[in-house]
Structures are given as C-alpha cells and as structure tokens.
Amino acid sequence: MSPTESKTHFFDTRAENWEETCYPTPVRERLLDLVRAFEVRLGERVLDVGTGPGILLPYLRERMGPIGQLCAFDLSLEMIRQARRKSHTSLDITFQGDVHFIPFADGAFDRVICFAAFPHFDAPAQALREMGRVLKRGGVLLVAHLLSRQELSAHHGTHETVARDLLPSEPEMKALFAQAGLNGTEIVDIPGRYLARAVKTG
C-alpha cells in the first residue's frame, strides 16, 4: 500500500465516528469562533478542501446564505459519504477529489478553505498552487486548525500513519504561499488555533 493509500485507508476506516470523536460540543464552540474568523460573505462561491466528514459545511452554508455555492471534496470516499449528509442546497457539490488536481477552472472561487487537512497533503507546494489557481484575483485562502502548529505535531505523533504530517514553519509556509501567487500572508499560531490567511494578488 502506497503512503497515499495508507492515509486514505486511515481516514476511510475512521470516517463513521470521526465527527463525534474529534468534535464534541466544547470543540464545536471553538470551531464556530474559527469559522467566524474565515469572514465568509453572503453569496460567495466557497471551496472546502479536504472536507473530511463535512464538519464545516453547515457553518459555512449558514454564513453564505442560500445563494452562494459551496463545493467540498476529500480524498477519502467514506468521509465524503458522511459529508454528503450535510449538504443543504442543490447548489452544493461534494465529491471525492485530490487537492493536487482540483477539477475546477482558474479563478472559480471567492474563498478556499483548507481546515485540518494541509499537513496530510503529499505535495504541499502543488496543493497550494492548485488552491491558488482556483481562487479569483482578490480571493482568500485560509489554512486552519483547532490546534497550534506545535500541538498538531504532538497530536499527529500519536498515530503512525500521520505522524510525519506536520505544518511547515512560519517562514516555510509564507514562502510556499508566495510561490503559489498568494500574498500578504498572516499566520496566527496560538494554543488552540492555527490560521494562515493570504490573498491572491496575481
């Protein structure tokens, strides 16, 4: 089994209980705070990259209103099956997909959100290029976690399959963002929150 297949298997086999295990009520309250920090606006077209069981979808949908379009994908089909239970409008599209080859046209989205997924990508630079490519000029990319970078390293370290899935250091992350045409990168890295935000200027 390749590393990618191992990881997909890891998430497939945990999909059914992922939400109740990882997002009990107190965590959801912090999640709601984090979603507010995404500053999603009414009517936007938003892409949720690595959506997992779609934990963000109801919160994003609420902020986008009924006319925005919410697209979400994940490499794990079992996670996607969980996420599809949360789609609220017929405009929403949830599918199995790979961040390294995002199946949307250039400049398709106002906002791309990558929550609790970035360290799992095989080729972070390519993933960022793709996320940047599908953003409109002036669009915003957000890479977020409910743990700091250090907390995340400790957390992933407890599972062999994802033990080496770490967030880049702040200078590395800023350089990766810049290479992807994303500028003005701001990174908040505090206990209980990691939020990297950048704007597509090119």
């Binding site: 697209c71 017929s90 405009l91 929403d92 599209i93 599918f95 997909g97 080859f101 199946p103 949307f104 046209a105 398709a108």
Partner: peptide, 10 residues
C-alpha cells in the same frame, strides 16, 4: 476528469 479538465455538478 483530470485529462479532460471536467468540473463536477450535481
């Protein structure tokens, strides 16, 4: 999908 650059719809 990758080869023909197709986009998903529902």
């Amino acid at each position: 999908v990758h080869e023909v650059k197709a986009e998903p719809v529902n």
